[in-house]
Design a protein around this nucleic acid. Structure first.
Lengths: 102, 102
DNA sequence: TCCAATGTTCGAATATAATCGAACATTGGA
DNA sequence: TCCAATGTTCGATTATATTCGAACATTGGA
């Protein structure tokens, strides 16, 4: 595939966001993307898991509307859809991210 | 059992809260408890499901620390632990509840 | 053109969760 | 004391999720 399909922000459902976040691996991905504040490749995230597992989790993050993935050559650049989600569900992602801080 | 065991607020984990909320039935319970703003019995919630199913969901809501259940005679009064959770994870529950409004 | 790099998809195994009927426990009242 | 009411627990079934190796697809560069 050239580029990956994502839901529009209108299609995003709160329950899917919560579901996507309710997994330690995916939460870790989201937290790292938020901390990075920029697009990261799966490789850069380096969560020490097989590629197929990471791909699975990214698929869920994408379908929930949390992550946007742009294909760039052989790499896939992933970014949090923070602003969009904040606009649709103010405070949800922000407070969750804040809650994960040490 | 006389009274039911609940986690202290210190024991409450964000991921468990998100997991508990990531189910339509449980989300509905939480929303109704929030709207009611008072303790409700399972019966009052009336989600049209078997008792054993409701009991199962309440167990998860309790163990996540979202709901507190006080035994009162033959009834079990359920309340959202809103203030405690707001204090520990500011904005999380509040923003989720706001996001569920029409 | 060939190939290494990056992820995705497939498939199968395993693990976890939801569902719900039936039996049980506890309580308060008749 | 008996019993109806309210939930819980148990057990079995079904449904969903996670995991990950292997095969595949796409790309850019040698």
């Amino acid at each position: 595939m050239r580029q990956i399909k994502h839901p529009t922000i209108e299609q995003v459902e709160l329950i899917d966001i919560l579901y996507a976040l309710a997994d330690p691996t995916r939460m870790e991905i989201v937290v790292r993307l938020a901390k990075a504040g920029r697009k990261l490749t799966c490789g850069e995230l380096d969560l020490n898991r097989p590629k197929s597992s990471m791909s699975h989790h990214f698929k869920i993050l994408r379908s929930a509307g949390l992550v946007e993935t742009v294909v760039d050559g052989t790499e896939h650049m992933n970014a949090l859809r923070l602003e969009e989600i904040e606009q649709k569900y103010p405070g949800v992602l922000e407070s969750v991210l804040k809650a994960t801080q040490p």
